[in-house]
Amino acid sequence: MTYEGWILLTACLVGISCGMVGCFLIVRRMTMLADAISHSVLLGIVLAFLVANSLNGIYMLIGATVIGLVTTFAIQSLHNSGVQEDASIGIVFTTFFAIGVILISLFARDVHLDVEHALMGEIAFIPWNTYTVFGIEIPKATGMLLCITIFALLVILMFYKELKLTSFDAALAVTLGLPVALIHYLLMGLVSITAVGSFDAVGAVLVVSMLVVPGTCAYLLTDRLSVMLLYSCLFGAASAIFGYYGALWLDASISGSMSAAGGILFLLTWVFSPRYGLLRRYRAMITS
């Protein structure tokens, strides 16, 4: 595949995996957690690097998932002990992120781990760093993202009912005997691995936009969770593609344009959505 092809594929995988997982954060009203997890995942990556002394993707995934779950757990514990939820989120993730930044500057200064990279990502470098699988040379980050996307898709397909019910009505889920807490942490684990998979491509700041924006667009267009998931993947992929060509055209940062494309798509949906769009509500107001 061409250089451009790999970048587009990687970007689409970011959009699809984040779009899928992000939907559940949106319907659970937990998008702030996306922010928290995507930042504290940096600490997981650094710790994995320091412990395993390698930049191998598997260690990073494990480190990030563990730290993602620890973040969720720490936020929950602080909240249960009387701190307001948004304050708990703010305290936990900034602290974890800060520790990550300090560790990088102390121990990992010379490796391919720098703060700017972690924040902004650099999708343009991804096609240069490859391995060979089944005789095909594919970029490492793309391979990892492909596995993560398939894994997230399988988990969502297998536990769709449970994820949906615990999101909508945890109380009923409890009376039906579903392990509500376990399912919550399963979802948070998914958010963590999706975030770390997308990290290389778009960085911590933009993972948040990929987790939140496509799902929010989709939410405006449908009343079915399953359809929302599908639309969200499409919006994620579309902002990746438009973003890439936008970046070429403007000669700007690819990851930045991808987020901006997401923002523009959101604006369009918000105005023109046939169900909940601004225009439709305006028209309804006039006719009534």
Binding site: K164, A173, Y219, L225
Partner: peptide, 17 residues
């Protein structure tokens, strides 16, 4: 959560889960 993307029939089906 009245804003959840779900409809009447879907909510009732949840009772079967």
């Amino acid at each position: 959560d009245w804003d959840f993307p779900t409809n009447a029939l879907d909510v009732i089906l949840m009772g079967r889960y």
